Computed example of a mutant assay.
Amino acid sequence: MKLRQKPEDFIVNEILEYKLVDYGNYSLYRLKKLGIENLAAISYISKNFKIPLNDIGYCGLKDRHAITTQYITIPNEYGRISLDEENLTLEYVGTIEKPLKIGELFGNSFEIVARNIDKNDFLKFAENIDTLKDGIPNYFDEQRFGSVFNGKFIIKEIINENYESAVKILLTNYTKSEKKSLKDLKRFIAKNWGNWDACIKYIEKKQITSKMFKNMIKSLKYENDFKKSFYYVDNRLKELFISAYQSYIWNECLKEILKEKLQKDDRKYIDYSCGTFLFYKNLEKDVFEDIAKIEFPTIAIDKEYEEFENRIINSVLKKERIKIADFKKITFGKLKYSKRPIISIPKNVEIGNFKSDELNIKKYKLNLKFTLNKGSYATMVVKKIFETF
């Protein structure tokens, strides 16, 4: 099975409940983008219209590799703006009283085309589609872990006081989707690690504009202190690093819960970049009713946990060889506490028929439509259908 062979194969529309007013203080805009990372789109709007980043409100991050529609707010003092570019449009909706904040969306609707399907698998996939009524484990998926390379979390390296390792991950590792100029810079830094003069000359020669890279390398040259150089990392990136490790721990906690609830024959493990997801193949009614009620907390400092929560969290942290108190070593940002349902149940599910796939010879495609509550990942639904058999 293949996803995202065409841009229109993965469409995400934000579901937002809002009330327009005649004289609101904030302008509400509909932002549509293709192939652009969420924060990059917001930064582009900020620079293009000279609006401070902190004045642009939004509810959540959207997948880069999709056609996505979401909402943002901008104070009226900046006037009415618009964009109509090939991969980025901004449309004025009206005025509202308060700015949008992270997490305020209701959910997201998805339209997905799964391709390259073998007809011998039709029955297996149809059976898995039928089990969507039992929900799916509500894991954080790969999109949350873009800062993790070779299983190493930058925040865990900092907790273990491996500051050089943390800085090296950031300055030398890259993803396929990054710009060539940035990939080349990171390759050069990796090859010349410790030769900061050479790295500075490269940055100047190639006219690299990133202030973060310039400041971090200069800090290493003049102070040779990896902990201090981390100070120059963009605050939004620091928050993403914290969120990535916090999300991984939550995933591992969910896996521990499912191990307690599921018979071994009902377990199905699927690999991902940070380890494995545990799915269920079959779910008895009483087990479903039990786990459907569970909302599990994210790990945070100085929070009171119930006995069951403490047991699960401590079990995971023991495997990680850390303690909750170790997170106090993080002197920037903070762990955001919330409770998250351990299963997600797709709603408004519409499944098309298997049709001939025009992009893959002798293969078939399948159209999927569904909505999910905020924070849940459509790719988990796809994994449930196409990988758990």
Results as ranks from 00 to 15, higher is better:
residue 52 P to F: 11
residue 52 P to W: 08
residue 54 N to F: 13
residue 54 N to S: 15
residue 54 N to D: 15
residue 55 D to G: 03
residue 55 D to T: 06
residue 56 I to N: 01
residue 56 I to S: 00
residue 57 G to I: 06
residue 57 G to F: 02
residue 57 G to N: 03
residue 57 G to P: 01
residue 58 Y to T: 02
residue 59 C to P: 01
residue 62 K to D: 07
residue 62 K to V: 06
residue 63 D to G: 08
residue 63 D to Y: 11
residue 63 D to P: 09
residue 64 R to I: 15
residue 64 R to G: 09
residue 65 H to W: 09
residue 66 A to M: 05
residue 66 A to H: 06
residue 66 A to E: 06
residue 66 A to T: 07
residue 68 T to V: 07
residue 68 T to W: 02
residue 69 T to S: 13
residue 69 T to P: 10
residue 69 T to Q: 11
residue 69 T to K: 06
residue 70 Q to E: 14
residue 70 Q to S: 04
residue 71 Y to M: 09
residue 71 Y to F: 14
residue 71 Y to N: 06
residue 72 I to G: 02
residue 72 I to R: 00
residue 73 T to E: 03
residue 73 T to W: 05
residue 74 I to Y: 00
residue 74 I to T: 01
residue 74 I to N: 00
residue 75 P to E: 00
residue 75 P to H: 01
residue 75 P to K: 07
residue 75 P to A: 04
residue 76 N to P: 00
residue 76 N to R: 13
residue 77 E to D: 10
residue 78 Y to D: 03
residue 78 Y to S: 05
residue 78 Y to G: 02
residue 78 Y to Q: 03
residue 80 R to D: 12
residue 80 R to T: 11
residue 80 R to G: 12
residue 81 I to F: 03
residue 81 I to H: 01
residue 82 S to D: 03
residue 82 S to F: 09
residue 82 S to N: 13
residue 82 S to H: 09
residue 83 L to D: 00
residue 85 E to F: 07
residue 85 E to Q: 13
residue 86 E to T: 15
residue 86 E to Q: 12
residue 86 E to H: 12
residue 86 E to A: 14
residue 88 L to D: 12
residue 88 L to M: 05
residue 88 L to Q: 11
residue 89 T to A: 11
residue 89 T to N: 15
residue 90 L to A: 15
residue 91 E to Y: 09
residue 92 Y to Q: 07
residue 93 V to Q: 04
residue 93 V to S: 04
residue 94 G to C: 05
residue 95 T to A: 02
residue 95 T to N: 11
residue 95 T to Q: 13
residue 96 I to H: 04
residue 96 I to M: 07
residue 97 E to N: 08
residue 97 E to M: 14
residue 97 E to R: 06
residue 97 E to A: 13
residue 97 E to S: 12
residue 98 K to E: 15
residue 98 K to I: 11
residue 98 K to G: 12
residue 98 K to V: 10
residue 99 P to L: 09
residue 100 L to S: 02
residue 102 I to T: 12
residue 103 G to Y: 02
residue 105 L to S: 11
residue 105 L to T: 10
residue 106 F to N: 14
residue 106 F to Q: 10
residue 106 F to M: 15
residue 106 F to C: 11
residue 106 F to E: 14
residue 107 G to D: 08
residue 107 G to W: 13
residue 108 N to E: 02
residue 108 N to I: 06
residue 108 N to Q: 11
residue 109 S to W: 08
residue 109 S to I: 10
residue 109 S to L: 10
residue 110 F to S: 01
residue 111 E to P: 13
residue 111 E to C: 02
residue 112 I to K: 15
residue 112 I to F: 02
residue 112 I to S: 07
residue 112 I to G: 03
residue 113 V to A: 11
residue 113 V to I: 14
residue 114 A to H: 02
residue 115 R to I: 08
residue 115 R to Y: 01
residue 116 N to S: 04
residue 116 N to E: 10
residue 117 I to A: 04
residue 118 D to H: 05
residue 118 D to C: 00
residue 119 K to N: 00
residue 119 K to F: 02
residue 120 N to L: 15
residue 120 N to M: 09
